[in-house]
Design a protein around this nucleic acid. Structure first.
Length: 191
DNA sequence: CGCATTTGACCGGCGC
DNA sequence: GCGCCGGTCAAATGCG
């Protein structure tokens, strides 16, 4: 259990140890185990429950890893959630210059503005199909930093907020503790 | 005054 | 080509 800087009762809950990707996924996923729950378990051990610690995520490195990152989670067994770009070797896709880092996770939260330690500027809001809830688009406020994130409520369980980070911060973040999610290195820290 | 947010317009990819 | 859909732009507006 964790809480965000401004959070009350904001908990990341990922209980399924072996989430299964949806059938429509490409075969790469089936070979790649989901490591995220393990790392969160690590942090649970690190910090006692009665002492909720503020934290944030930060993309740190992914440059040596050529393939696009993927993240698949089945949270709580009540439906699957997929984020990530396919790394098919279609020639047209090779044209793209940047390999985007993408990580998504889901938190149980009453508020949608989760303070993760970075400064964000909202730049869009859309209603997405098959969901009554809007999707909000944010960009990192730091000049020159291209990192974006999307925030939306879970369709199946509105008590959850799905946050998706895209990109790597070009500036140092305020956090030091390092861990990995499916090849993407993140960092977090107490404040 | 200098920022952030709001919100409809705009755009590009994709499927038909 | 056309319309849908997800993502972004930008002018107006709000706020400290």
């Amino acid at each position: 259990m964790f809480s965000f800087h401004n959070g009350t009762n904001n908990k990341i809950i990922m209980t399924d140890k072996n989430p299964r990707p949806p059938n429509s996924l490409d075969s790469n996923f089936t070979n790649q185990p989901l490591e995220l729950p393990e790392y969160f378990k690590f942090d649970d051990d690190q910090w006692p429950d009665d002492e909720p610690e503020p934290f944030v995520f930060e993309h740190v490195v992914n440059q040596e890893n050529q393939q696009a990152n993927k993240f698949v989670g089945d949270f709580g067994g009540s439906g699957s959630y997929l984020e990530g770009s396919s790394s098919n070797d279609v020639s047209s896709e090779r044209e793209k210059k940047e390999v985007t880092d993408k990580v998504a996770f889901k938190t149980q939260s009453e508020v949608e503005i989760l303070d993760d330690g970075f400064k964000w500027r909202k730049y869009g809001k859309k209603m997405v199909k098959n969901s009554p809830n809007p999707r909000n688009y944010y960009r990192c406020s730091v000049d020159g930093c291209q990192v974006k994130k999307r925030v939306e409520r879970d369709v199946n369980d509105p008590s959850y907020v799905i946050t998706t980070y895209v990109g790597t911060h070009t500036h140092p973040g305020p956090f030091t503790r390092i861990f990995k999610i499916c090849g993407v290195t993140l960092s977090m820290k107490r404040d």
